[in-house]
Simulated scan of single mutants.
Amino acid sequence: MFWRKFTQDKMAMTGLWILILIILSILILPLFYQTSIEQIDFSKSTLTPSLQHPFGTNDLGQDQLARALFGGKISLTVGICAMAVSITIGTIIGAIAGYYGGILDNILMRLTDIFLSLPQLPVLLLVVYLFRDAIKTILGAQTGIFVLVILVIGLLNWMSVARLVRSSFLQLKEREFISAAKSLGANSARIILVHILPNVFSVIVVAATLSIGNAIIVESTLSFLGLGFPPDIPTWGRMLYDAQNYLTSAPYMAIFPGLAIFLTVLSINYIGDGLKDALNPK
């Protein structure tokens, strides 16, 4: 029933096929298109798209298609990992607040309100600016920035998940099957993990899909502002940052990575909408 309902949503299916195509291109095309992403050749600077360079070249003569394929892996990985962080934190806080209620619920929801009141982008920029050098020293330039970006995005995007999970727990904990489980001697941990959480799974799945798209946009914003990954790691956002001075002379430098971000996020959002309808028991 779920799959039949999901396949009836044309926009969700279109988004699914576009996302599958993007992922397969990122994973498979580099096996055949083995142009270096680091080779610098100023004689090929800002070449227009051609058969030899389908996405053209940047100001350093580096192939844009190879860099876009490599950057796609990082952007999608950041999106998935940041989603995992935000979904985990939001589910734990929402489950505890919704199930136990009382003072604990009040404290956790006030904490959620505090995080919701924070201006996300300025806080992101501030945290990355303050801690990027320290974490680079500890974990290295690439790994350090990767971990920092994931944690910062995840820690600032769990609030909506917590509210959704809490509201679902508040409704489900009063149902008859929960009373039956309690009368049979089930403890709180078993009730939360076995009886309530599976019934909240649909809400979590929808929130997870939307979180991936949001995380990709935030990472692209950080990279565009020059506070993301180092210049030698070509994420889609970093490619946009490098293209900002060539928008008139070489607009394709911004068009292709921008189109990749647009299609990926749009397809994920359509998939999320389709999942929301398909998993809705009503």
Score class of each variant (00 low, 15 high):
residue 36 S to Q: 05
residue 36 S to I: 09
residue 37 I to G: 06
residue 37 I to H: 08
residue 37 I to P: 08
residue 38 E to H: 13
residue 39 Q to R: 12
residue 39 Q to L: 11
residue 41 D to I: 11
residue 41 D to K: 06
residue 41 D to Y: 10
residue 42 F to S: 06
residue 42 F to K: 07
residue 43 S to F: 15
residue 43 S to Q: 13
residue 44 K to G: 10
residue 46 T to W: 10
residue 46 T to S: 12
residue 48 T to P: 11
residue 49 P to S: 04
residue 50 S to C: 00
residue 51 L to H: 09
residue 52 Q to R: 15
residue 53 H to S: 08
residue 53 H to M: 09
residue 56 G to I: 07
residue 58 N to A: 12
residue 58 N to Y: 09
residue 59 D to G: 15
residue 61 G to I: 06
residue 62 Q to F: 03
residue 63 D to Q: 07
residue 64 Q to A: 09
residue 64 Q to C: 07
residue 64 Q to M: 12
residue 64 Q to I: 14
residue 65 L to D: 04
residue 65 L to H: 09
residue 66 A to N: 01
residue 67 R to C: 02
residue 68 A to V: 15
residue 68 A to K: 13
residue 68 A to F: 11
residue 70 F to L: 15
residue 70 F to H: 14
residue 70 F to G: 10
residue 72 G to L: 02
residue 72 G to A: 02
residue 72 G to F: 03
residue 74 I to G: 11
residue 74 I to N: 10
residue 75 S to Q: 02
residue 76 L to H: 02
residue 77 T to I: 13
residue 78 V to G: 06
residue 78 V to H: 08
residue 79 G to M: 08
residue 79 G to L: 05
residue 80 I to N: 03
residue 80 I to A: 04
residue 81 C to W: 12
residue 81 C to A: 15
residue 83 M to K: 01
residue 83 M to P: 00
residue 84 A to V: 11
residue 85 V to T: 07
residue 85 V to C: 01
residue 86 S to V: 13
residue 86 S to Y: 14
residue 87 I to F: 05
residue 87 I to L: 05
residue 88 T to I: 09
residue 88 T to W: 08
residue 89 I to V: 12
residue 90 G to Y: 00
residue 90 G to D: 00
residue 91 T to S: 06
residue 92 I to V: 14
residue 92 I to K: 01
residue 93 I to K: 10
residue 93 I to C: 11
residue 95 A to K: 04
residue 95 A to W: 01
residue 95 A to C: 05
residue 95 A to N: 01
residue 96 I to A: 06
residue 96 I to V: 12
residue 96 I to W: 05
residue 97 A to E: 01
residue 97 A to D: 00
residue 98 G to L: 05
residue 98 G to P: 03
residue 101 G to V: 02
residue 101 G to N: 00
residue 102 G to P: 06
residue 102 G to R: 11
residue 102 G to C: 10
residue 103 I to C: 13
residue 103 I to E: 14
residue 103 I to T: 13
residue 104 L to M: 15
residue 107 I to A: 01
residue 107 I to V: 10
residue 109 M to Y: 07
residue 110 R to D: 00
residue 111 L to M: 14
residue 111 L to Q: 08
residue 113 D to E: 09
residue 114 I to C: 08
residue 114 I to F: 13
residue 115 F to T: 10
residue 116 L to V: 11
